[in-house]
């Protein structure tokens, strides 16, 4: 087994472990750290899978991705937590233990789905694609199963990480301009969501999204 493959498998493992830790933790500061670690790991992927493209493209992409997900997002989110004075997720709709089990189930589902579809993945590791797909599902799960708006933003970031891993693992790769555009969108999205959370906490004195229910019918 060559070293690159080894590294890729390590990245995949980090991706999966951080997913489960996110599902199992209610402390928002820890969750932000796990998501940042996940972002850093995913950001490495273009460098490890650079076989299709040039080094320059891979390096630019990895740098942009890692700075954004490993540095900028955690700073923005930690700031917001400090401003609104919220520490942890209280009474999620689905308990932490159940969430972790659900996460394992989603991973199994992704394995089954990607195997059935025989998508043309890069040959180095067959695991990245199902792991990426599972990350997308887990991000979605975080968004629908937690109460705090901050966790929803984290869920969005996790989804974004999953899509990023999935996209990098697809053989061929997307043009650099598109990748950068996607990263820019993710950045602006998280930025805008943070501003929105700030306003929500000021108007409502809480950031529990399940209580945002006055508009109905």
């Amino acid at each position: 087994m060559n070293p690159a493959t080894n590294l890729i498998d390590t990245v995949t493992a980090i991706l999966l472990i951080t997913n489960l830790m996110l599902l199992g933790s209610g402390y928002l500061t820890s969750c932000i750290r796990y998501a940042a670690l996940q972002g850093l790991a995913v950001g490495l992927l273009p460098l490890l899978l650079h076989a299709q493209g040039s080094w320059g493209r891979a390096a630019a992409l990895a740098a942009a991705g890692m700075i954004l997900k490993g540095v900028v997002f955690p700073i923005v989110l930690t700031r917001i937590l400090r401003d609104i004075n919220v520490r942890r997720e209280v009474e999620p709709f689905v308990g932490y233990g159940t969430s972790v089990m659900a996460g394992v189930g989603m991973l199994a589902f992704s394995m089954w789905l990607t195997r059935r579809l025989s998508l043309s993945a890069v040959p180095e590791s067959a695991l990245i694609m199902p792991a990426g797909f599972a990350t997308v599902l887990i991000g979605l799960f975080l968004i629908v199963s937690r109460r705090k708006a901050v966790t929803q933003v984290l869920g969005y970031i996790v989804m974004e990480n999953g899509i990023y891993a999935f996209g990098t693992a697809l053989a061929g790769g997307v043009p650099l301009l598109v990748e950068l555009g996607v990263l820019l969108d993710a950045f602006v999205a998280v930025f805008i969501m943070s501003i929105a959370i700030y306003h929500i906490s000021r108007e409502f004195d809480h950031i529990d999204v399940d209580q945002l229910d006055r508009l109905q019918g």
Binding site: V136, M159, I163, A189, I200, L215
Partner: peptide, 25 residues
């Protein structure tokens, strides 16, 4: 900036961002 418009904006932001992320997949 009112409670109701913030609520609508948050739903719009989350639902559409997540939805459109599927389109990227």
């Amino acid at each position: 900036v009112r409670p109701l418009s913030l609520e609508a904006m948050w739903k719009y932001l989350i639902v559409c961002s997540v939805g459109v992320a599927f389109a990227f997949m």
